[in-house]
Design a protein around this nucleic acid. Structure first.
Lengths: 344, 344
DNA sequence: GCTATTAGGGAAAACGTTTTCCCAATCCGG
DNA sequence: CCGGATTGGGAAAACGTTTTCCCTAATAGC
């Protein structure tokens, strides 16, 4: 009957690390697995307790590879951020990480530098890692992303919407509304004729913000003169802001308010003024995102604050709901700072 | 001879996704695996080419779970950062991520918030993930860390040395020297009687910096009066700085120079002065790390710059060298800014 | 008191790789 | 032309889980 030479204790020996737990608890590895995974109707309370005790004693934790192999999915959640050196994105990442951790998931953070090839490379890799979800914190259009929208892996777009239009959930603020709020804030302050400096319009967030701002000034019969709308596709936000700031400095009639579609741009503008006109007052500057460090470093900068802390929660809830096209719009607020800032 | 009923095409069918590549290339899965892993002496150039072509056509990438299971190690490198909202740490993380990626590795980034329990939790999880290395970007003493030093997983301590003293490699600057350089810079400027505000001394980086600073002033016969050395174990660096700044503001004779052991502390100090004494000149402030944003946001802050970009490379090289106790000391530089900054 | 159901739990298959054997053919020196 | 080395490549084991079948005993329903 038995062709194996002398298989004494059946499969109780071996069975990987989980086998050790099983032996210690005097049960089969199947039972241990069930206890770990919370399958309650297959083990008596007494057995469950014994197994838990054994797990505790051995400080056992299932190897993720075995699990991933069998279940064809891991507990890894990929977060592809467009630019980690942006404190706002770093803050959102940190929030996501904490929330995912609480949900028993593990975040893998990547920096795509807003480059399609890099985003594709990471998408490939994360698919190979069998990530159970992919969070795009500032997505850019790329071939692999197009393929992916038809696949099973849940996709969550944060801040920027899916550049391909369809598929995937969204978590972010109402950028159109935020733009309008910013513009109205400016008008309420009696600050007219502002300059507008924006990032490339490939980002839906930037597009919406610009649209909201323009809409308010248009409606008030004070459309922004095109000479006062500056942008560039060259360099990062800081550099865009600095370049635009230099242009503003060179103008005959400098604007008393500069609205920027991101705080980083605003930092660049401020630097240009500071360096070109030392000792002179800065214009009022308005940004978006309200980096956590603004409170400490940019007392001159008013901004639209996005609720970083809430992003993690929202992402996890989207994940759990399993709805692949849900939208979560988080509330933004306007933070007003400064007034008569000097350029040191 | 054959006991299987009618195993037609042997194991050519099945064999997971790699089997499809094998079929397409007309080889066994073993050969495909060998080509993927660069085992050159087991496949002719012609076969290799056919396999590569098949891989390309199918856009195949091996599932990491299978590989990890067999090899008992993954391509994941865990990076446990003490505080991701510190731009300096974020910058180092970004550098590490890029370098690891170039080396074919994947970074998993976690934020321990300098809390031992959280660090332990992550260490456990990353062990379960069979991370091929663990990078501690600001480690804190914790039970699991002690266990780990005797295990096989390579440990790399960045910035802060191993709080347990032994085991693991180190990558960072010479903090003692940096402290001395900062103090000498101050003395060369003729700035005497500075205040010193430091983070908790549980970090070796902070200890070394403080020691270096004190040593220089001691040697010059101008030891720092203890009333001018402030710290706190309560709150993060920003808050420590702010609280200390308020104390300085309240002093009869305010120092004309404040040396802080981190930029974040310096930000806090600046804010305290700005808020308490609006319109008055700030003292000279000196920090450590030189966050990338300083150039844009903190024109008043001189600092010791650590070479972020170099950290990633250094980490990867340490990893590859396989030496578990190597030390890589990176060069720092002093960045001087500002002079007569106003508090707006 | 008999069967139908269920609770509790074990054996083994399956997951997708890598790697260890193994084998056939070719090559080379004598 | 023979024996050993070398080259190219296939079959199958191993990795540590989860999960699907099973099986036994107890319990409920009549």
């Amino acid at each position: 009957m038995s062709k194996k030479p002398a298989s004494g204790e059946s499969n109780l020996s071996g069975g990987g690390a989980i086998g050790e737990v099983a032996r210690r608890a005097g049960v089969s590895i199947a039972t241990v697995s069930r206890v770990i995974n919370g399958v309650t109707n297959k083990a008596s309370p007494a057995t469950t307790a014994r197994v838990r005790e054994a797990i505790r004693e051995l400080d056992y934790r299932p190897t993720s590879a075995g699990r991933a192999l069998r279940q064809k999915t891991s507990r890894l959640v990929a977060v592809l951020a467009a630019n980690l050196s942006n404190p706002a994105m770093a803050a959102i990442s940190a929030s996501a990480e904490a929330a995912l951790r609480d949900a028993g998931l593990v975040m893998v953070l990547c920096d795509t530098h807003d480059r399609p090839e890099l985003q594709d490379e990471y998408l490939r890799e994360m698919l190979a890692q069998q990530a159970c979800a992919i969070v795009l914190l500032g997505a850019v259009d790329s071939p692999k992303l197009r393929e992916l929208t038809s696949l099973a892996t849940p996709l969550i777009f944060v801040n920027r919407r899916n550049p391909i239009g369809t598929g995937g959930a969204f978590v972010g603020i109402d950028n159109r509304q935020a733009g309008e709020d910013a513009a109205r804030w400016a008008m309420d302050k009696g600050l007219s004729g502002p300059a507008l400096i924006h990032a490339p319009l490939s980002s839906s967030a930037t597009r919406d913000r610009v649209a909201g701002i323009r809409a308010v000034f248009d409606a008030a019969g004070l459309p922004l003169p095109e000479a006062m709308v500056l942008s560039s596709t060259h360099g990062d936000h800081l550099q865009i802001g600095q370049a635009a700031g230099r242009s503003l400095v060179a103008m005959d009639r400098r604007p008393s308010l500069v609205i920027c579609t991101s705080d980083l741009i605003a930092f660049g503008v401020a630097r240009a003024f500071r360096e070109s006109l030392p000792g002179q007052p800065l214009p009022r500057i308005f940004g978006f995102d309200d980096s956590p460090l603004n409170e400490w470093l940019a007392p001159h900068l008013s901004s639209v604050r996005i609720p970083y802390q809430a992003f993690g929660q929202a992402i996890v809830e989207t994940l759990r709901s399993g709805q692949p096209r849900g939208e979560t719009i988080l509330p933004h607020t306007i933070v007003e700072r400064g007034g008569q800032a000097m350029s040191p």
